[in-house]
Every structure is written in structure tokens, then in C-alpha cells.
Design a protein around this nucleic acid. Structure first.
Lengths: 206, 206, 206, 206
DNA sequence: TTATAAACGAGACGGTACGTCCTGTCTTTTA
DNA sequence: TAAAAGACAGGACGTACCGTCTCGTTTATAA
């Protein structure tokens, strides 16, 4: 996606010199790297351009602000949605939750989300983009696991899947948010097991 | 608290002109106001000083950085810990959770926490201060409610109170974090009721 | 004149799409207009191209720099050399001097000359071009008037015509240069009359 | 003179940290040097600040534009008005004219005057400043020499001193302006002698 | 009472980064 | 093969804040 001048239909190519795909990639990589190294606040477009070996206006031509660049970079550089589904849905749930929480609280992604939420009122468009392109597919994979478990009779059919996901993802994320420490696997496992048990015996009412 | 030159014991007062308490209050107020208006990223010491009617060095004399100022302001301006305890612990829980989540996700406090977490690795001291002076007392009030409910037999005595609090606080906070929208009371109620039910019938094992 | 790719002989036409003569004219006109409106320093190739309705590289294809473009435009757009010679050489002198000084100190031409002189050391070629194509023919017309006056006995035969022209052109130009104000006709007349008188009675020795 | 905030009366000092006189001098020196080396067009505030060992905003704090800086620098760094008056007014005239023309057509001063005249309509204030602080005193010294010569009977009492000065200064300056070459002493002498002779025998009428 | 010490405002300092504009060049499609 | 369109690397622009400093002034305590 090219935010400023969206990619035209492939048939009728845009006129003039096309944008350099290498430059684009270099900028995104530099952004994610620097985000991990120095954080969002300290990150400067200047430094991104320098590390990418690109002139500063080349960055501005594509992304109108630091926040847009960072969100875009994070979404496009995020690890793909995992879909290794086994016949043990509880293990699958733990695995997917651990991966998503680890990614969300990792340096680049987490910092982008925090920065975005901090200014959310001004950037509804970006928030939606992050929700649609990053969170939604990952949440869908989790929901699929739970739906299967319901289908196979392992979980109570009345369970509210969205609520369950908020609990299982929210608890570890909250710890990270209020302590700054990465989430350890033991506590992630405890959360998943508790919520699973809840959903098995039934009390998570819709 | 005066971070740089800690308040001496009242007996042997420091010589020279004492610090202006009005200036201090004006700075804190300006900080919280601006934090709500423009966000953390856009907030500048320059603007705080201007709004407080104070010279810039007067701010720096007391707080060494924007982040310290903001954390300090947020802690000192936060609404006091509520302690209206009734004989309905489930209602108390809902009430306290709603208040804390609302405060944490409000403009000034939420933005401070997000900014801090985003740079957590560099600011362990500030993170601890926020944990000790803001979160700990509020969490303690919540824990007290749950302990009483255990004592009165309303909740399973094996319940892991910390885990329960992470769930009940984490789920609403997570929604806010991933959508930017303030938490509505309906979903807060759903979360509290689900977790309460879990803890009643027992499966939140220690 | 096409500085970079000189106009080929008309017989063997160059291959491919020929240059657009309208574009050339539009560029020159835009240059002179903008020179008068915003001055040399503020003039940009970008603005010239925009006003001429032409792509920027089309300008660069023909003129390698702003200065070359401006000098070229000024020479080609300058009013033609006047040659209305009467039988009153003193009046002819005044007329020609007034015209030349007015042109030289007018917005486009004057600004070009000033810009060129300011960087004269780097642009000997352009300076020569301006001297040969603009100043020389105008000075020649003036010299012709003086030579005729010498021939008819109105002026001392020993007069140094070059010196006389430097005096009669230099004095008004100097006023303009040091005040920025256009030369008024009264003072131009005073200068011409004084120098004429000098040359009549003789003291401008070769 | 400090252009933006003019030097207050020495009694009532300006408040706040006073400006660094060394920085000011370093900036002026760097400006004049660079003006001579690279010319007005190529001169950048950036380069001035770098050479002066000063931050860029420090330059902008005092001079709002390149042109103001250059004019100010040229005026303040110009060699002082010479006043070596002998009992040979014609020699004095030649000497003063040569000095002034040489200075005016030298790299820094000449380039400043050219740049200013090129944009004169926008900068009436600067033009006046240059006229008052640089040209006027030098012209006054020349006028004084001529007045003495009139007083001693060497020149015709009806001579128009201003016209005479325009001629004697204008002719050499014009040569420089139209050729870019510095004025040689031989032609300066020829001009002075011609004008002197004119003024001696009388025809430069008021 | 009078030093003395430290706060105060004002504002300059060296810096960094901003986001924009223009430079001159290069690449692509269209004519 | 020129023209238009537009991206490229690069450099400077003028501005906003940063965090520090130097002032002259004010206000308390300590001598």
C-alpha cells in the first residue's frame, strides 16, 4: 500500500518514474529496527532516512508522519499469522496467545500500539488500520480454535468467545502495561488454563 | 515531592528564597490539562511553563524531564483511592474496577502510563514509582474486597486473587488499548460477572 | 538559440519528436515575467516551468542553469536597438542614453546584469555574451552619434568617446545602483548636458 | 546595532542573558569571508553558522534574513572612512575615489550592493541603511575635498558637486558592472582628471 | 540589620529535528 | 527521440523545543 498515492489498478500504470521498491523496503526495515533500539519517542524520521540510505523527502513522499510510518512498518513487518492447528485446542490456544502477546509486547509492535493509543482520538484511521490489518486476523485465528473446541464438545456451547479472548489476551497484556516487564510463559499458561476451565464448565455466559 | 533537592527536615530549613508552592501547583495543573488536550507526544515543557506562567528553568529545577513531570503530575492529581465498601462485594468489585479502569484509560493518566511503558527499559525508577504510588494502593483496595468475599464464603477460598485482578482489570484495559475507545460499562459488568462466577465455583486455582 | 543541442541544419532533420518551439517561447516569457515579479534570487526553475506549462526537465534540456536561462531570456526579449537618428546629435544622445539606462535599470534586465556581475568570476562566458549581444550594439549606436557630432564639428575632435560614454551612462546607473530608485529624466538630462559641454569645449582628452 | 532588538539605552539593561559579543563578531567575520569566497547567491546561513562555530538559530535570532545579515556585515566590517587630506585636492580626490570604488567593487561589499539593488523594491529599509551608514559618510568626505577646492579657487564656484561625484564614481563603477573586471587605476585616473578639468573651467553648471 | 543563599523571570546559548522547497538527475510512459 | 510526469539524492530553508547558562531581581534565613 502506498498511503499518499494509492497504487492504481495494475493495468493503467501511474505515469512518471515509479517508486523505488528497494527504498520502500529499506525504510520499513530501518523503522522497525530503530523502533526496537531507541523507542518511539526518540525515533526520528531523520535517523530512519539516514539508516535506510535514503533522502529525507523520500520518506515524507510516502508517509506523512512518524506515526503513519511506524504503524505501516509494524503491520507489514509483523510475523505472519500462525495457523499450526493440532488436535489439542487448549495447547493451540496457549501457543497462539503466547505468540500474539509476545509480539504485541515486543519492542517494535508494542511501542507502536502504545504510541497510537496515546493519540488515538486524533488518529481514528490509523487505529482502524491496525485493528483491521494486524489484530483482526490474529484474533480470528484464536476464535477459530475456540469455535472448534466448542464444536468438538470440549467447551461449553454458550461461551462468549469475544469475552474469553479479551480475558486471555488482556490479563498478560495488562501485566506488561503496568510493569513494563515482558510476559513470562508461566503466567501466560496460568491465565489460559483458568480461562479454559471457566469456558469448559460454563460460566462465561453470553 | 521535590525530586532534585529533596525537602529538608522542617527544623533546619534551607537558606535562601524558598520554592514557590504556587508555581509548583500551577505547573502540575498545566501539565495535566495539556496532557488531556494535546497528548503526551505533543506536550512540551515550553508549553507547560507558558501556561503555568512560569519560566522554563523553574520547571527544570524541579523535574529533570518531561516524563518525570508527567508521571509526578498524574500521581499527585489522581482521584483518591475510593474506599466505599458495602456489604455487597460483587457490586464493590464492579464499582472499583470501573473507577480504576476509567481513570487509567482517561486522557492524562492513560497517556502517562502508555508513554512510560513505551520507554520502560530506560525508566525502571519511574515505573516503580507509578506502580507503588498509583497502582498498588488501588489494587490493594480491590484485593481487600475479594479477600472479604473469600472470608464470608462467597468466593472459593483457593482463588488466586492476583490472577483474578489481572483478568478483571486486563480485559477492559485491553479493549481500550486495541481500539482506543473508552470502556463502556456494559462490557465492564460482563467481565466482572464472568470472573466473579469463575471465582465462586472454584476453577481459578492458585 | 538552443545552447545544448544546436539547431541542426534544416535539411537533415534530427530523428524523433522535434522540440516544441512554443515551449521555448513560453519558457522565455515566463522567465522575464517572473524576473520582473519576484527578482532573480527568488526566481526558481520550478516556477518558470510551472508558469510556462512545461515539465522541469524540459527547461534543463535547453539551459543548464538559472543564470544562463535568465541571461538568454533578457537578451532575446530586450527591446531592439533604436536607430532614430535626427540632425540634433545632442538630443539623439539624450534619447539613446535615456532608453539604454531605463532598460538596464528596469526589473528584468537590471536584475540579470546585477546577478551576473555578482558572480562574474565564475561566468566569464556569460559576461562576454551579455557584453557582445546586448551592450555592444547599444554602445555602438551611441558612439556613432558622437562620431557624427565630431565629424560635423560640434564636438572637439580630440574627445575620448569611450570615456565620454562611461561618464554619461555611468552616472545615472550609479545613482540607481546606490539608491535603488529608477533614474529620473531630469538628472539624466543634466548629466548629458554636462558631458556634452565638456566634450564641446575640449577637456576630455584622449 | 542589533537589528531585531535594538540596543537599549546603556542604563536600563535588557533583561535575561546578554548576547554573546564573540558570537556576533564571529558571525560577521564568517559572513564577509564567505561572501568573498563563494558569492552572495551561494552563501548560506548554514555555512555562516558552521564557520562561525555557532548554532544556526543564533544567527536567525539576530538577523532575520541573509540579506540583512550581509548588509549589516558589510557595513560594520568596511574599512573606515579615510580622511588623509593633503594640500593637493586633486590628488586627494583621486585617492578617495580609488579607495571607494575599489571597496565598492570588491568581493564582499560589491556583492552585497548588487544583491540589495536586485531586490531593492522589497528592501527600502536596507537600502536606506546602506546609503546612510556606508555611502553617505564616504561621499561626504569626497564632497569636502571638492568644497575646499572651490574655496581655494581651484574649482569653478558654480560647480554641482553632487553631479561631479556621480560622474567620477559612476564611470568606473559602470565599467565594473558591465565587464565584471575590477577597475584599473589608469582609467580611474583618466576619469578623475577629465571631471576635474571640467569643474575647473566651469561647464558643470548647477 | 545586614549578609548570604537560593529561588525567580527573562532570554541567549549550542544543538537536534522538523517538514518544506528547490536543485539537478534519472526513469518510465506517451506521443 | 522528445515531452510530461514524477521519483530520486541532496542541501538549505526558517521554526520549534531541547536542556543549559547567565543575568538582574526578589525573598528568606543566618550572622
Amino acid at each position: 500500500m502506498t498511503p499518499i498515492l494509492p497504487e492504481a489498478v495494475p493495468v493503467a500504470r501511474r505515469r512518471g518514474r515509479p517508486r523505488d521498491a528497494q527504498a520502500e523496503q529499506a525504510i520499513l526495515t530501518a523503522t522497525v529496527d530503530l523502533l526496537g533500539e531507541v523507542g518511539f519517542a526518540t525515533l526520528s524520521i531523520e535517523a530512519v532516512a539516514a539508516r535506510a540510505g535514503v533522502a529525507r523527502p523520500t520518506v515524507y513522499r510516502r508517509w506523512p508522519s512518524k506515526l503513519e510510518l511506524v504503524i505501516d512498518a509494524v503491520i507489514r513487518m509483523a510475523p505472519p499469522v500462525s495457523s499450526d492447528i493440532t488436535d489439542d485446542p487448549r495447547a493451540d490456544l496457549l501457543h497462539l496467545v503466547s505468540r500474539l502477546v509476545a509480539d504485541m509486547t515486543s519492542a517494535p509492535v508494542g511501542r507502536a500500539i502504545l504510541a497510537l493509543t496515546g493519540e488515538a482520538d486524533k488518529h481514528a484511521d490509523l487505529a482502524r488500520r491496525l485493528a483491521d490489518d494486524y489484530l483482526a486476523p490474529r484474533r480470528a485465528a484464536l476464535a477459530e480454535v475456540l469455535r472448534r473446541a466448542v464444536g468438538s464438545g470440549e467447551l461449553n456451547p454458550d461461551v462468549d468467545i469475544d469475552l474469553m479472548l479479551d480475558l486471555v489476551l488482556g490479563a498478560p497484556t495488562y501485566r506488561w502495561l503496568t510493569t513494563g516487564r515482558p510476559v513470562d510463559s508461566r503466567s501466560a499458561r496460568a491465565v489460559v488454563e483458568a480461562v479454559w476451565e471457566m469456558a469448559r464448565v460454563g460460566p462465561i455466559a453470553r
